[in-house]
Structures are given as structure tokens and as C-alpha cells.
Design a protein around this nucleic acid. Structure first.
Length: 764
DNA sequence: GTTTAGGATTCG
């Protein structure tokens, strides 16, 4: 390249100039003289547009003035750049520039009589062996707090914000850059150029830019910078101490030692005055609801519709969340199909929209990209809040710098990414395939086919997670190898469950002593009632201050005395719907009749001093169809008298828990206890369901007394699993499970329990 | 020597 930048310090150009060259005064530029070891020095007073000559050669004409002999008429001379040099110089030569030219041809100027300049002109071309030494002008840089509208200035600044060049609605690329300097004043510049390379190559907040010939003007009361003719820029990495390598498309630029100092000072200032983000987010670290910049490699792309475009990218890490797969015909996908399939667990699909489509189309497979302000959106199919996955979208517009930038291979981040990608053992990320490829030979079950397995992972689950949405799905083969206790999110199918007779799943649980017991059946209650009927009601205990009593005798089928005590409120017996009663001597049938009319029924018997509760195998309270039991081990029943404290409350609610507490009863809770045998394609495990009502959306307490609820539960279980259906046809369940250890004799065993999981509403 | 955009996210 015969254009050599000349470093000029204190106006002395000789540093980089070959020693054999000698300066020639314009008056000695004469035909017939030997100029082989001469150079001409001049300043550009005028430049003409680049034109093509009749023979197709490019030609660029400027006028150089020898400023040291400017009084002479011949000090102005026409210079003709020809061929490639014309093109190169037309881009970089500006009025006011000073340059040295050697190896030129001298020819008679055809226009000398009209323009009054030197009678010869210089022809400058590669063919002639010309070399140009532009002289670095002494550029002045304006601090950002000294800017005035209507001027064209040179600036230095640290990048506070930028939009990577994008295709504007006009004819050019556009890049918006906000810079700031030590004056803490910022300037937003709107830069246009039809040539992408002419815009600054900014990759990160904190990069340092140098703008030459940027126009300052006012817009909406604010100062802004805009590109003007001759705009040029240099960009430097903003990391303090990093090598100072200018990024520019310019073949020709000045750069002095002094400027190195400016850059380093700005770097250091920026490091503590700009919000420079921490380590870049990798796919493995992506969090939902996040906007982030992704540095990645493009491995596939496909046109979707006019307003969206698919990019398949990877960064060598596996996204820790399930990410969406955009359905696309293989034939519509550009890229190496084998590679795309091989990397399918490591790639993510990104849909880019609107204005980004055009740029996306032009991206080359294999190129390294930085996608700015990419949205990681957590999404779920309708009514399936538990099935969440991440959608990667680059929304339309350029807000917050949203866009796509192509990074050169020389970029340090790209170098790092490349060597990381090269170091990857891809087999590690294909465990699904490894496991199933063996199984594929023995079964056609698509459950073990990796592709279908992955597709299935995106299918709806019949269960919903009520918490821990951020947890990732863990495969059974991992869980089964881990130590307890841990918590996992799983995705599996229900191969079978116990008990098959669903009513047997209802148990009574004491949260104090952790005991589980069967729900007593009606016969037990009958037996206890009969036993207590042998004790006659004590008349001394009738009609107390806080209850009224009614007593009657029955003859058939046997002789009995029944006493009903109506608990009063404000010295009045309340309407039946609000009234709690205590019953002595009744049968189960009679008591159940009372439960239909009264707020609550407490079966009691008389002692000499007070009424007391029956044996705790009988319910201590019946409300509606629900029988409330107490724990025999943990309860210390008190006499019934204590109940009047509740009766005196302003609005006695007769909540079972309150009744229990005042009577010294530790109430038992109804629970579903089931064992689910789950399979996920990588293994099988048994997990207990221990649940009051959340899982089935049915209170365990009500199931035994409701045919309807039992049918509902049966229907639910049928939809989750059925021995008649193939495992393939069974739906997915997404659950949280926790592992824990139990001592089984001398051995420790790991068990699993389902929690924070419910059956999806539309399944029930 | 025009226009583009002129910072400030969420639909797909």
C-alpha cells in the first residue's frame, strides 16, 4: 500500500520518510528533470469528486498548495490520482490536509491557462510507483462541555450508550452513539453512512471513540452530533491497560503518542464513571425476564414470514432453562443440517422481528454475532402455567440498543469464544442421545427417541407447579445418583400408582407426632356411641348458663335417653344454622341428621361434674359431612365447660381448629397419601404424594363423604395414568419432588415426595 | 450534499 502515514511531531515530518527523498520546490517541478528521489509537499486547498475517465480509469483531482512558498503563482499545482489510488485517496483526503507525494509523473497541465496554476500537474498512481505520505495535522479535540451548535469539531469520548449500526428507513446505515468525557457532559450522536464500515465499530459500553469532523447542532433544545462530510472515527477497546489498537475502516488516519494518553485517561475515567456491565451473560446463565447481550455464533437461519426471521445460535453453554424450538421445515433452514442436529442441545432459537429481519438475512452462517438487548421471555402455553420455557426474541425497533452486530474474528471476545467452542467435548451434551440410541434398537417406543423425547418436553403438562418456577428440570438418572436431601423439578409420566382403590388414599395425619392413621369407619363410631349410650345423661348438667338442653326417650328399637344441648350466644339459642349442639345418647344416624341442620355437633356423655368427649376414635366434632378427629397420642381433652369461652365470642365461628384447641384436642388432618411410580425416559422412581387438597383441588376431608368428589378424583387419576394406555399416550406431569432419607431397620433409604404441584385445572 | 434518527425495551 503506497500510502504511508507520517507521524509528525512538532511539525517535523522526517521521522518515517526514507532518507534518500528530498523535498522539491514547486518552481523546480519541470518536465525533463529527474524527480525519482524527490517529494512534493502541499496542503489540499480543493478536491474534486472522483470521476471515471473515458478508458474506465478512476481519477481523483485535488489542488495542493506549497504553503512554504505560497506567494508564488506556481505554488498551486493540480494533482491527479489515477486508478486504485484515486479511489483510495478520494475517501481519505480532505480539504486542509497536508501531504507529501513521491514517485509521481510530471505532465503538462492542460488547464493551466484557465486555472492559473502550475503549468505541470502531478500524476500519482500505483503504476507510477507513487507513495503518499499524509502529514498528520494537529487535530484539536473539543471537550464535551465546550460544544456549540453550528460547529464541526473533533471529539474524544467514552461510549455510554450505542446502537450497533442498523439499516435505517432511508438510504444509509444508522448508528446512535452517546459519548461522555471527563467533563461529565454527554453527547448523543446520530451517525449515518451508506457504508457500514464507515460507522464506528463499537462493541461495548466503555469503548473509546474518536470522531473527526462531526457536526454539532441543536435539536429540541439539546446539543447533538451528526455526521458531516469527512466524518471519520476510531474506536478502541475501553479496558484500561489493553492494547491500543484502533478499529477503523479508514486506511489512513493520524495517531500520535499524545492521543494514546488521551485514550488511556478516558479508559480509566470510564471504568469508574460508566455503568459497565459485568461478565457477559452466557446461555447457561440466562434468566427469564431478562434483556441481555449475547455473544454467539450463527449456525442456522431461516426466513419465517415478512416480519420475523429465525437465527439458530450457540455459545457453547447449555441454556439452563427449557428454551423454545421454533418449528421450521428443514428445507427452509440454511446452515449445516448435520451440525445443527448435533448441536441441538446447545443451540437456541432466536426470532428477530421487523427492522432486524433485513440485517438477519444478510448474516453469514458461522459468523460471530453480538445480539444486543435480546429478550429472554418466560412463556407458558395457555392454561399451563407450569410448563414454562424461554423464548428468545429480538423485538422490533432499536430501543436500548436492540440490534445485531457482527463481530470480527479479531475481537477478543470472539477469540475467547472460538477457543472455548473448539475445546468442547460435544459428546457430553448428547447424553440423551447416548442413552436412547441403545434403547432405540430394542424398542420403537418414541419415549426413548431423543428427538421425540425433546419434542415431548415442550408438550403440555397435566400438572402445574405452584412455586419454584426458576428451578430446572432434572432427569431421573441424575436424581437417582444424588444424595438426599435435595429438591428437583421433574418431568415424567405416571406409570402406575398406589392405592388403586382411591378412597384408601385418605388418611388422618397428626402434625405434632407425625403419625398417620386410617380414617375410622362408621362401625367404629357406632360402637363407641352404643357404649356411651349406656351412661344416662346427668340431669344436673342440663340447662346451664351457656346452653339449653332438651331430653327425650326412645322406646324402639331399644330404650334410650337422648339429650341435646344447644349452645347459647348472648344468652339466646341461635338459629340452627349458627348453633352448635352437644348430643348425648344419639345413634350415628341421628347425629348425622343433626349435622344437616346444625352448625356443628359434638358427641358427648355425662360424668358427675361435666359433659365430656367420647373416645377419640370417634369424631370430636361433626360439621356438615366432615368428621373431625383428634390425635389420641397428642390430645389432652378438657371438660366441655371450656367451650363457653368460644360461645361468648362476638361471632362464634365454631371453627374446628378453635373448638379443638379449647377442648385440648390435637386435631388430625385429612390427607391424600399415594405412591406414584414415575418414569422420565432416563429412569424410574417412586414418589409419595402427601397432600391436603392442593394436588387434586379437592379437600381430602370431603372425599369420603362425597360420591361426586370420589368420581372426580377417579377421573383425574384416569387422565394422569391408566394401565390401558401405552406410556407413549400418557400425558406429562411436571412436579417438584424432594428427596429425603428414612431409616429402614439398619439401612438408610432415599425416598421422594411430591410437593408444590397441582393437577391442571382443565384436567380435573 | 436529501433522508434516515433524534437512546429509554416487553407483541410476535
Amino acid at each position: 500500500m503506497p500510502i504511508h502515514m507520517l507521524k509528525i511531531i512538532n511539525g517535523a515530518p522526517e521521522t518515517a520518510l526514507p532518507s534518500h527523498l528530498q523535498r522539491v520546490d514547486s518552481k523546480y517541478l519541470q518536465l525533463g528533470c529527474d524527480h525519482a528521489n524527490k517529494y512534493f509537499k502541499g496542503t489540499v486547498t480543493l478536491s474534486y469528486p472522483l470521476i471515471k475517465l473515458g478508458n474506465g480509469t478512476d481519477s481523483f483531482k485535488i489542488i495542493l498548495q506549497d504553503m512554504d512558498n505560497s506567494c508564488s503563482r506556481t505554488s498551486s499545482i493540480n494533482i491527479l490520482f489515477l486508478g486504485k489510488m484515486a479511489k483510495d485517496c478520494a475517501k481519505v483526503v480532505h480539504q486542509g490536509d497536508t501531504m507529501l507525494i513521491s514517485g509521481f509523473n510530471l505532465a503538462t497541465s492542460p488547464s493551466a491557462s484557465e486555472d492559473g496554476r502550475h503549468c505541470c500537474h502531478l500524476e500519482v498512481s500505483e503504476e507510477a510507483g507513487s507513495t503518499i505520505y499524509p502529514v498528520a495535522p494537529k487535530y484539536m479535540y473539543t471537550p464535551l462541555n465546550r460544544l456549540k451548535g453550528g460547529t464541526t469539531v473533533n471529539l474524544y469520548g467514552a461510549v455510554k450508550f450505542f446502537k450497533s449500526p442498523y439499516i435505517s428507513k432511508g438510504t444509509d446505515y444508522c448508528s446512535v452513539v452517546t459519548i461522555v468525557d471527563q467533563s461529565n457532559v454527554k453527547l448523543t450522536c446520530t451517525l449515518f453512512n451508506g457504508n457500514l464500515d464507515a460507522l464506528p465499530k463499537i462493541y461495548k459500553i466503555g469503548d473509546i471513540v474518536r470522531f473527526h469532523r462531526i457536526k454539532i447542532r441543536e435539536y429540541n433544545g439539546q446539543i447533538q452530533g451528526v455526521t458531516s462530510i469527512g466524518f471519520a472515527s476510531l474506536t478502541f477497546d475501553g479496558t484500561p491497560g489493553a492494547a491500543i489498537i484502533p478499529r477503523t475502516s479508514s486506511k489512513l488516519y493520524t495517531f500520535t503518542d499524545e492521543e494514546q494518553k488521551t485514550i488511556e485517561e478516558l479508559r480509566v475515567w470510564g471504568a469508574s464513571n460508566l455503568s459497565i456491565s459485568g461478565p457477559a451473560v452466557k446461555l447457561s446463565g440466562v434468566q427469564p425476564k431478562l434483556y441481555f447481550d449475547l455473544t454467539c455464533q450463527l449456525i442456522g437461519k431461516a426466513e419465517m414470514d415478512g416480519s420475523s426471521f429465525l437465527l439458530k445460535v450457540w455459545d457453547g453453554t447449555e441454556c439452563s432453562y427449557q428454551s423454545w424450538k421454533v418449528p421450521v421445515e428443514s428445507s427452509d433452514l440454511e446452515g449445516d443440517k448435520v451440525l445443527i442436529h448435533k448441536l441441538r442441545n446447545l443451540t437456541v432459537d432466536i426470532l428477530v422481528y421487523d427492522n432486524h429481519v433485513q440485517l438477519a438475512k444478510s448474516l453469514k452462517i458461522g459468523s460471530f454475532l453480538r445480539i444486543y438487548s435480546l429478550r429472554a421471555k418466560q412463556a407458558s402455553p395457555e392454561n399451563q402455567a407450569d410448563v414454562s420455557y424461554i423464548e428468545f426474541r429480538l423485538h422490533g425497533g432499536t430501543c436500548y440498543g436492540r440490534g445485531i452486530g457482527v463481530l470480527p474474528e479479531s475481537n477478543p471476545d470472539v477469540k475467547e469464544l472460538k477457543s472455548f467452542l473448539d475445546s468442547l467435548d460435544l459428546a457430553e451434551h448428547q447424553n440423551v442421545e447416548t442413552v436412547s440410541s441403545m434403547e432405540l434398537h430394542s424398542t420403537s417406543d418414541s419415549f426413548s427417541n431423543p428427538v421425540i423425547y425433546l419434542e415431548r418436553c415442550q408438550q403440555l403438562s397435566v400438572t402445574v407447579l405452584t412455586d419454584h418456577q426458576d428451578l430446572n428440570v432434572t432427569a431421573f438418572n441424575t436424581i437417582l445418583n444424588n444424595h438426599a436431601p435435595q429438591q428437583y423439578r421433574i418431568r415424567a409420566k405416571l406409570r402406575t400408582f398406589k392405592p388403586q382403590k382411591l378412597y384408601q388414599s385418605i388418611k388422618l395425619y397428626c402434625s405434632k407426632c407425625n403419625s398417620l392413621q386410617e380414617v375410622p369407619d362408621g362401625d367404629d363410631f357406632d360402637f363407641i356411641l352404643q357404649d356411651s349410650a349406656a351412661t344416662l345423661p346427668n340431669p344436673e348438667l342440663h340447662n346451664k348458663l351457656w346452653y339449653d338442653s332438651a331430653v327425650w326417650n326412645t322406646e324402639h328399637p331399644e330404650q334410650r335417653t337422648i339429650a341435646v344441648h344447644f349452645v347459647k350466644h348472648n344468652e339466646m339459642v341461635q338459629e340452627p344454622g349458627k348453633c352448635l349442639i352437644m348430643v348425648e345418647g344419639g345413634t350415628q344416624k341421628e347425629i348425622l341428621k343433626f349435622t344437616r341442620r346444625f352448625k356443628g355437633v359434638i358427641p358427648v356423655r355425662s360424668t358427675q361434674e361435666d359433659l365430656e368427649l367420647l373416645d377419640l376414635s370417634a369424631p370430636f366434632l361433626l360439621q356438615g359431612k366432615i368428621r373431625h378427629y383428634g390425635c389420641k397420642q397428642c390430645s389432652k381433652p378438657k371438660t366441655i365447660k371450656s367451650l363457653h369461652f368460644l360461645a361468648e365470642e362476638e361471632h362464634p365461628s365454631w371453627e374446628p381448629s378453635e373448638v379443638a384447641q379449647i377442648l385440648g384436642i390435637k386435631p388430625l388432618q385429612y390427607v391424600f397419601v399415594m405412591e406414584f411410580t414415575l418414569v422420565d425416559g432416563t429412569g424410574e422412581l417412586d414418589a409419595y404424594l402427601f397432600d391436603y387438597e392442593k394436588f387434586f383441588h379437592i379437600p381430602a376431608s370431603e372425599v369420603l363423604s362425597s360420591d361426586l368428589l370420589q368420581k372426580k378424583m377417579e377421573a383425574t387419576m384416569n387422565s394422569l395414568s391408566s394401565p390401558k394406555r401405552k406410556i407413549d399416550d400418557l400425558p406429562w406431569l411436571e412436579c417438584f419432588i424432594r428427596s429425603y432419607t428414612v431409616r429402614d431397620g439398619t439401612e438408610q433409604r432415599v425416598c421422594y415426595q411430591i410437593f408444590d404441584t397441582t393437577v391442571a385445572e382443565d384436567v380435573v
